[in-house]
């Protein structure tokens, strides 16, 4: 599974992307976030305030209840501020 981070989430995690192989009990975005929080203190800090964390699976906006599977590209980022 390929993870991507943008804006301050990228800065807090410390990398723009990483490949992970989550355990089989990680079935949705919420489960993936719980798994990532335990990965490092930087991840725990980045995912500390979930009200300002948005997610896209395979480059489409989704909610935290969306399923994730091996091979997915999962991106985490703050609410968008373009335009």
């Amino acid at each position: 599974m390929r993870l991507r981070y943008f804006a301050w989430l990228r800065q807090r995690v410390g990398v723009a992307a990483e490949e992970i192989d989550p355990p089989p009990d990680v079935r949705d975005v919420a489960g993936l976030i719980a798994h990532l929080r335990a990965r490092s203190p930087r991840h725990a800090e980045a995912f500390g305030e979930l009200a300002v964390v948005k997610v896209a699976v395979n480059q489409t906006h989704v909610g935290f209840d969306h399923p994730v599977a091996p091979g997915d590209e999962v991106a985490f980022f703050p609410p968008v501020t373009g335009g």
């Binding site: 943008f6 804006a7 896209a56 906006h61 991106a75 980022f77 703050p78 609410p79 968008v80 501020t81 373009g82 335009g83």
Partner: peptide
């Protein structure tokens, strides 16, 4: 413009 500002993945 309204949709772009809330959906397009850009960060300032």
């Amino acid at each position: 413009m309204d949709w772009l500002k809330t959906k397009a993945p850009f960060w300032k």
